[in-house]
Amino acid sequence: MIQTAAFYSLSALVLASALAVVLHRNTVHSSLFLGLSLAGVAGLFALLGADFLFAAQIMVYVSGIAVLVMFAVMLLGRKSDLHLRQVNALWGYALAVCAISAAGLLKVARGFAAAAPAAAPVPSTAAVGRLFLGRYLLPFELVSLLLIAALLGAVFFSHSEPAEGPR
């Protein structure tokens, strides 16, 4: 009962703030709504019994990515942006694409209506850690390599002096 109420309120929060992210004219407000939406997704993870995902979502998304996006918005923004249209001219076609995809996806979702929740969720952090260092060890190491590459790439591209080589 309380689970159902929590699910519906968190879903409403996530979807409403996602719509605000997409439709808001002011990009700073849009990035703040992005943080709210990601926090709501963290709540959904907690509701689904994914405790490690909940913590990782808060640490990586809400306090990492949302803040980074906010920095970028404030570095790039201008005052004149507030009076410009933020949606391009082809939004009607995009809406049609989304409506058709929504029909298909909802038809797919109807097939899972019978799957009721199993027993109460158990903490899964230990199982996730065992999978990381066991079955998924190679992807785990590759992902750390990817993070190093992203770090170096970010430093390289945002360096203020132009690097040597053809430009």
Binding site: L84, N88, L90, A94, V97, L105, V108, F112
Partner: peptide
Amino acid sequence: MTLAHCVVVASLLFLIGVFGALTRRNIV
């Protein structure tokens, strides 16, 4: 709350993201 509810919420969130990626003018 069944699996279908979660799939519906995820689909709607995905479609909102698709709409934004197709229509926003700002790269951020």
